[in-house]
């Protein structure tokens, strides 16, 4: 598995700190270790390949999600949070 911040193949607009903060916060809300959340978000993007090849998430968000500012990692995190509710 590839670390979230080592994934290649997409344009990342958010800084590493922003990513860390968002992960921490989500982990807190979900009552999960941040490492696990980070691992899941990475897997959403690369399916274990090391490249952000999830076109449906990494490509671009539908314009409904302004919070993620089109950084695929934040978009994937949003998706993971929703997934935990389903």
């Amino acid at each position: 598995m590839t670390e979230l911040k080592d994934i290649e193949g997409a344009e990342f607009t958010a800084s590493d700190d922003e990513i860390d903060d968002a992960i921490e916060e989500a982990a807190d809300d979900l009552g999960m270790p941040p490492e696990k959340v980070e691992e899941e978000v990475a897997y959403i993007l690369d399916s274990g390949t090391g490249r952000a090849n999830n076109e449906g998430v990494a490509g671009a968000a539908a314009s409904d999600n302004e919070d993620t500012n089109n950084d695929p990692r934040l978009e994937a995190l949003e998706m993971y949070k929703l997934r935990q509710e389903l």
Binding site: G56, V57, A60, D64
Partner: peptide
């Protein structure tokens, strides 16, 4: 197409589906 016609639920579905497809 979502840029012009943002179908939110459809987009969410696509996101889950494409994540599964990645695996």
């Amino acid at each position: 197409m979502m840029q012009e016609a943002p179908l939110k639920l459809l987009n969410k579905g696509f996101q889950f589906i494409s994540t599964d497809e990645g695996r």
